[in-house]
């Protein structure tokens, strides 16, 4: 950088300061006296700047000024009611975050593959297919199903279902536990022995033509006392005044299909059913004898 450019830069500063002084009301002579060494350069520039200051720059007419102010006041009056509902940005962000969390929780609760959501969703119908098998391991698979989902083999019944004699092709054993829990919802459980060693909760309305034992709870939130249960399956929040357990046995179709969505072991020492429901046996008879022969002992199939 040359000395001349450094001087020009200084003159830039001197001119800017001198213009500020002029704007502050000092005369040109007074201003020039404040910047010794720049008088010769500053004088013509300040004279030109003074011409620029005196120039007639266009201004807003008085009528336009009044009109504009009125429009601003009208807009302000229209905006005032809305402003009271505007939250500060921090609260808006917090509210949006809470909304997202609530949506995420709702989506998680409504997720069809979630295992325990039927306990908290009033419309969900938990379905338990318990299929005893001769094998040592008893597995259960369950998926929450909404009430709208038709279950081909089981209809959740709020009242005691028809007795086993009424069933035509389906040999069903219905046991009603009228015993007692509090609230309004009625669970329906159907137990059907099947050759598969699994207990299955199926959310999808897949018509299982398999010889399955199905335990279906009609009301999601309904507590069932002493149901052989998984912890997820436990009804909890509102006990029902009348709990109904329906145990149904269906004759197996020729070729059973097994499509469990997920499996997990069922504890062998299950708690007893509420009102005289037999416990599911841990050592079940072999599937062909149980399901295909009419002489199979139904009580053995019902007993968990």
């Amino acid at each position: 950088m040359t000395s001349s450019s450094r001087a020009i830069r200084s003159l830039d500063v001197a001119l800017a300061l001198a213009l500020d002084d002029l704007e502050a009301g000092l005369s040109q002579i007074e201003v020039l006296a404040r910047y010794p060494g720049y008088e010769d350069e500053l004088a013509p520039l300040l004279a030109t700047a003074a011409k620029l200051r005196r120039a007639d720059w266009p201004v807003l007419s008085m009528s336009a000024r009044v009109r504009g102010r009125e429009r601003v006041h009208v807009a302000l009056a229209q905006q005032k009611p809305r402003r009271s509902f505007v939250l500060p940005p921090l609260w808006r962000q917090l509210g949006a975050s809470l909304l997202l969390v609530a949506l995420a929780v709702t989506a998680f609760m409504a997720w069809p593959g979630r295992r325990s959501d039927h306990t908290s969703m009033p419309g969900a119908t938990p379905t338990i297919e318990a299929t005893p098998s001769p094998g040592p391991a008893v597995e259960s698979t369950f998926t929450p199903a909404p009430t709208e989902t038709p279950l081909p083999s089981i209809t959740p019944t709020p009242e005691p279902t028809e007795p086993p004699e009424a069933a035509d092709s389906i040999r069903s054993i219905t046991r009603t536990a009228t015993a007692t829990l509090s609230p309004t919802e009625t669970p329906t459980r159907t137990l059907t022995p099947s050759p598969t060693p699994t207990a299955t909760h199926t959310p999808t309305p897949t018509p299982t033509s398999t010889p399955t034992g199905i335990v279906a709870g009609a009301a999601a939130d309904t507590p069932v006392p002493s149901q052989p249960s998984d912890d997820d399956d436990d009804p909890t929040e509102e006990p029902s005044p009348s709990a109904t357990a329906v145990v149904t046995e269906t004759p197996p179709p020729p070729e059973p299909t097994r499509e469990p969505t997920s499996t997990r072991p069922v504890p062998t020492d299950l708690p007893p059913l509420p009102t005289g429901l037999p416990r599911l046996p841990t050592d079940l008879p072999p599937p062909p004898e149980l399901l295909l022969s009419p002489s199979a002992d139904p009580s053995a199939a019902q007993t968990p």
Partner: peptide, 16 residues
Amino acid sequence: TGAIKALQHRAIANLR
């Protein structure tokens, strides 16, 4: 601001 001061200086000088 330095650029504006320089620009202002050049503009006034050129105008003159």
